[in-house]
Amino acid sequence: MAGRTPKNTVQDWIEAAQRTLVDEGIAGLKVDRLANRLGVTRGGFYHNFKDRDEFFEQIIRHWENSCRFLPDDPPPPRPGDAIEWLDRTIGRLIESDGYDYRFDLAVREWARADKRAEWAVERADRERLDTLQKFFEAIGCDKEHAAIRARVFYYHQIGYYAIGVRQSIAERRRNAELYMDILCGEEELKAARAAAAKGRKARAA
């Protein structure tokens, strides 16, 4: 019937694509397969997207906007505030709160065969590393040291997901402080934590 409201929205298609990409990889992102998954015809796809290129671009944009490895706010410049930012970051990663590592890894695999995905991954990696470098500078590392620390932290965390380490949330929380001492530098973190404790005490006074 003319003027009929389509059953599925752009967001429905994008979310189905995300699930399929995680489960099956890029080979699963076929229009017919996604239409079957959503219970609609191919016409539903072309109601929402001009072609597969536009569809793929929107999936990549969705990944960039939704799969956030770090908080959207930058690390504060003072050591005590920066360490609280790091604690919040670690909590997000452990709880997968705002960061879906399976989606992240699926897009990285896609990037091996698609330049658009490759460029998006490169942009995301630069943004994440730049932000982490600012954190390390905030807790007292010089610029060169901060850049290397950022890489060590980031590559470790991505590698943790890539090799499929299996730990409970409780176990990850128990180990988090020791990991941070090793990855971030025990002396720098100790000084930053002392500054954070001093700041909390001053605010409570």
Rank of each mutant, 00 (worst) to 15 (best):
E137A: 05
E137P: 01
E137W: 02
A138V: 12
A138Q: 03
A138C: 09
A138E: 02
I139C: 03
I139Q: 02
G140W: 02
G140D: 09
G140P: 02
C141H: 12
D142E: 14
K143Y: 12
K143R: 15
E144C: 09
E144Q: 15
H145G: 06
A146P: 00
A147M: 09
A147V: 11
A147D: 03
A147G: 08
I148D: 10
R149A: 10
R149C: 03
R149F: 02
R149E: 02
A150W: 10
A150K: 04
R151T: 12
V152Q: 04
V152A: 14
F153A: 01
F153G: 00
Y155I: 03
Y155S: 14
Y155C: 05
H156C: 08
H156D: 10
G159C: 09
G159E: 06
G159Q: 06
Y160I: 00
Y161F: 15
Y161M: 05
Y161V: 00
A162S: 11
A162D: 07
A162W: 13
A162K: 12
I163M: 15
I163E: 09
I163S: 06
I163N: 06
V165R: 15
V165M: 13
R166N: 07
R166Y: 12
Q167S: 11
Q167D: 12
Q167C: 07
Q167M: 09
S168I: 09
S168N: 06
I169S: 11
A170K: 15
R172S: 07
R172N: 10
R172Q: 12
R172L: 08
R174D: 08
R174T: 09
R174C: 03
R174H: 09
N175I: 01
N175Y: 10
N175D: 11
A176V: 07
A176R: 04
A176P: 10
A176K: 08
E177Q: 08
E177K: 12
L178H: 11
Y179L: 10
M180E: 14
D181T: 06
D181P: 00
D181M: 14
D181R: 14
L183D: 04
L183F: 10
L183N: 07
G185N: 06
G185T: 03
G185H: 08
G185L: 05
E186P: 00
E186Y: 04
E186C: 00
E186R: 15
E187R: 14
E187S: 14
E188C: 01
E188I: 00
E188G: 02
L189S: 03
K190P: 04
K190A: 09
K190Q: 15
K190V: 05
A191W: 05
A191F: 04
A191S: 04
A192F: 00
A192W: 01
A192T: 07
A192C: 01
A192Y: 01
R193D: 01
R193E: 02
R193C: 00
A194W: 12
A194D: 11
A194K: 12
A194N: 14
A194G: 15
A194T: 14
A195C: 11
A195N: 02
A195P: 00
A196T: 08
A196D: 02
A197F: 14
A197T: 05
K198E: 13
K198G: 06
K198D: 15
G199H: 08
R200F: 08
R200K: 15
R200G: 11
R203V: 12
R203A: 05
